[in-house]
């Protein structure tokens, strides 16, 4: 019976889609946690070079200069905030028991796309355009507003194109990250359909608010934000 039984319980064949959007079928718990922590440290380090902040659960912003440790703290707060709220949501919504290490691991691995988002901001065109935008900021907010022709007369077109492309890539990475976060939560807590979607969205919103407040508080306390 052994061959017959093994044939009957063989998992579905691995495909690119299943590996990219639901890697948690194959890896979770401690292994996912180790890989995810590595990816988060890499994202924070690259972010510190390209001045890319992951200042929330879903946020990606560029520009503000800060010490390297702050980039790591931002990433860790975003991750732990979501883990905490998903664990609470899981306790309420899940009908079976789950392990905290699975939520920690899957949510850490789900943040992998941040590495690519941070790397995109390393492109010189993106860096130059960010500096240009920061330089233009007072003109954009002045009262009375500047004439559009004056605002954009020295617009570096090539850099603007690279910047726009980088924004699209960042948006795609964020969508991919949210899809991974959802799959990680659903697999860790054995949740499906409405129950999974509603509890995930609620936890995501709560985690975003909590992470944002914590990051701003740390930035203000340490003088990074005035």
């Amino acid at each position: 019976m052994s061959d017959d039984t093994m044939h009957a319980i063989q998992p579905p064949r691995k495909t690119w889609t299943s590996v990219l959007f639901n890697p948690f079928q194959y890896v979770a718990g401690g292994m996912a946690l180790v890989i995810g922590l590595g990816l988060m440290v890499a994202a924070a380090y690259i972010g510190s070079i390209s001045h890319t902040h992951f200042d929330g659960v879903l946020d990606v912003h560029s520009g503000l200069k800060a010490p390297t440790w702050f980039f790591l703290v931002e990433v860790l707060i975003g991750w732990l905030s979501l883990v905490a709220f998903l664990a609470i949501a899981g306790l309420i919504a899940a009908q079976s028991r789950f392990r905290l290490v699975d939520i920690l691991g899957t949510q850490a691995l789900a943040r992998g796309p941040m590495v690519l988002a941070a790397a995109v901001f390393l492109l010189p065109g993106v860096q130059r355009f960010t500096t240009y935008l920061l330089h233009k900021l007072p003109t954009l907010t002045q009262s009375p507003p500047a004439a559009p022709a004056d605002l954009w007369k020295d617009l570096p077109l090539a850099d603007a194109f690279v910047f726009a492309t980088a924004m699209i890539v960042t948006l795609l990475m964020t969508i991919w990250m949210v899809a991974l976060m959802y799959r990680g939560y659903a697999v860790s807590c054995n949740l499906r359909r409405g129950r999974a979607v509603i509890s995930f969205i609620t936890a995501l919103i709560a985690a975003e608010v909590a992470a944002k407040l914590a990051i701003v508080a740390i930035a203000r306390t340490t003088g990074i934000l005035s």
Partner: peptide, 8 residues
């Protein structure tokens, strides 16, 4: 045995 993760 199945090549799947523990929670799966």
């Amino acid at each position: 045995l199945l090549g799947l993760s523990y929670p799966t």
